[in-house]
Write a protein that binds this DNA or RNA. Structure first.
Lengths: 352, 352
DNA sequence: CTGAAAGCGCTTACAG
DNA sequence: CTGAAAGCGCTTACAG
């Protein structure tokens, strides 16, 4: 494996000490004289020693327990994909003695989030991955983790001013900015409607960041000859019926909308409306590769979907924890997902 | 790790045999009576035995040697990225006793390809990853590997009718089809020029597949009211000067081109021409996130670049070999890369 | 056909 | 502050 001239045994031989002492130095344990510590460290440098992580985990029998806290997969394709990524990561690392508990809360019931948080704090985990869907509750959970020195990772959305190990998720503002580019490329000039559909205050905050980016793009690129004007509608009753009604009412009054930017995966509801009311094609852009959204992409109602790589988020969430806790590697503070532009023509090549 | 009640020792205890015999059964080695073999297999099923791959590799000291054969990284950003991915994979698997040799041939000198192929055949490798840039030579190399029972993986481009372990790379036809969608979305109607720039017959063949996809999209979506007509130019002298001249000559005669589809990373040369001759913006789409291309994306000369994930290709090439040879996993016959749509607004979130 | 023993590279008590 | 020995779960000769 690592070769016979580069292991702890070789270091011990060169330093004229036992391998136990070498081990102490490698792991910065105390009980070694400064002299021998230095000598050993020099040799480590010299031969470029890299511990054999297989042998290390095998011998130590050390295990780690991680926990993930995300919305229940049954809710949406999005969280299903995230969980898939989590499982994929787990398959890769479980052989290293890592255990993983999954807590799947109900997005419509904040109390399940709180309950699981309490359970998790009792569980004495070595690391946590969470989707901070309920910002305040997540923030206080983060504080509790910090107090207990438990590293935690945010996926999908961030909580400001929390010292997480890393944030893994979309760059919301920039993805709105990207949507702006696509619409301008296809529309040239006219009027576009931003559609925010959400009943959750917490989530609404995220939609606004996308809206900001979108508006900024239009502002930056507008010219007097080819202006694009922006309207917006907030829909807070999220039953499908209510959404259809809200759109109908709005569009009866504003008949000159050429394009729609829906700031989340609810784009399917707008697609449904547009397909039913037909007339002619109008540009429609939204988020996420849910099955329903893809149906509307296929039939041409939706022009573009912006993908946020939920599977990758889940995978990286767990792997980042592993790299940090087990492999002692440096982790980037922010890991923004690519802003995937998905069409009828390329969606088959994106799993999520 | 795997828990004390599920290892070879436990199986041996239950079967009333030694662990050596258990090992023989696990690895289908001969020299075990049918009776004990069955008994052991039953127990393996019963307790759901999964061998500890760490311990296995550690104990066996088995090593594997892989080789990669790709164009020299100095040639282009593209192959630099591919090599990066290969190195990333290698870092992950080297601890399992895998060694990797890199053969970087000169894209402009077929003889270097042939030379390396001969070297590799002498090297008795356990697996090969190659970019079959020279189709015939690659095909005969593939045959030689097959004769020797050496699994081989094609990345970046495929060789028809060869029984590779897997193909990892773009779906050329579909990426051209995707380019068609983008141009129609922005252009609505007019005239588009396909630009093939290549002096290599082998490579030209790939460009044609993209061209086909592009043309098919236009054909499928053309209507009498909003037709898009397609012209094309092949440029086989690939010095920058010659390209500029060829474009200049062509465009003096065809002044009504509204959009350009360049079928490979040479899009930078077309961008240079368009930026220098200015007038007004015309739609320009090409391939690959090279530094130069990104410069033209940033300044607005290029509208879209289609990414082919060279880093990912390199990574998956090596990992597929590892999964097959070391971990004995099933590998999908074709692993098409996503057709990434890259813009000025999202390129920062794509490494390659 | 089968088993006892040594060993992979590292870690962990334990003894000094 | 330091070392000898046992052991992690598996594999590999070697002996019978």
């Amino acid at each position: 494996m690592a070769g016979r001239l580069s292991g702890v045994k070789e270091i011990a031989r060169r330093a004229n000490v036992s391998i136990a002492t070498v081990d102490r130095v490698i792991h910065n344990r105390k009980g070694v004289s400064e002299t021998t510590r230095q000598k050993i460290n020099e040799i480590i440098q010299e031969i470029g020693f890299q511990p054999n992580i297989l042998a290390s985990r095998l011998a130590s029998k050390k295990t780690n327990r991680f926990a993930v806290l995300i919305p229940d997969a049954r809710e949406t394709d999005y969280w299903k994909a995230s969980l898939d990524g989590i499982e994929r990561a787990y398959q890769e690392i479980k052989q290293y003695g890592v255990f993983l508990d999954r807590y799947l809360f109900d997005l419509n019931d904040k109390s399940t989030f709180v309950k699981y948080v309490n359970d998790m704090l009792k569980g004495s985990y070595d690391g946590v991955v969470m989707a901070p869907s309920f910002i305040e509750e997540a923030a206080s959970f983060a504080s509790a983790c910090a107090d207990r020195q438990i590293p935690y990772v945010f996926i999908n959305s961030d909580v400001p001013n929390r010292d997480s190990l890393t944030y893994i998720g979309p760059h919301l503002y920039q993805s709105g900015y990207q949507a702006g580019q696509l619409i301008r490329f296809g529309l040239k000039q006219g009027k576009v409607l931003i559609v925010n559909i959400s009943k959750e205050i917490d989530a609404y905050h995220h939609l606004l960041r996308k809206e900001e980016g979108f508006r900024q793009y239009m502002e930056n690129t507008n010219t007097p000859e080819a202006p694009i004007r922006v309207e917006k509608i907030d829909i807070t009753n999220t039953t499908d019926e209510a959404i259809q009604d809200a759109l109908d009412t709005f569009l009866k009054e504003h008949t000159d909308i050429d394009a729609f930017f829906v700031t989340n995966s609810r784009v399917k509801s707008v697609a449904k409306y547009l397909r039913n009311t037909a007339r002619q094609h109008r540009i429609l852009i939204g988020y996420d590769l849910s099955e329903e959204n893809i149906e509307y992409l296929k039939d041409g109602t939706i022009d573009f979907l912006i993908g946020q790589k939920p599977e990758e988020q889940g995978y990286l969430g767990v792997m980042s924890l592993f790299q940090h806790v087990v492999a002692d590697k440096k982790i980037a503070k922010e890991q923004y997902m690519p802003i995937d532009i998905i069409t009828k023509e390329n969606f088959e090549f994106y799993k999520n």
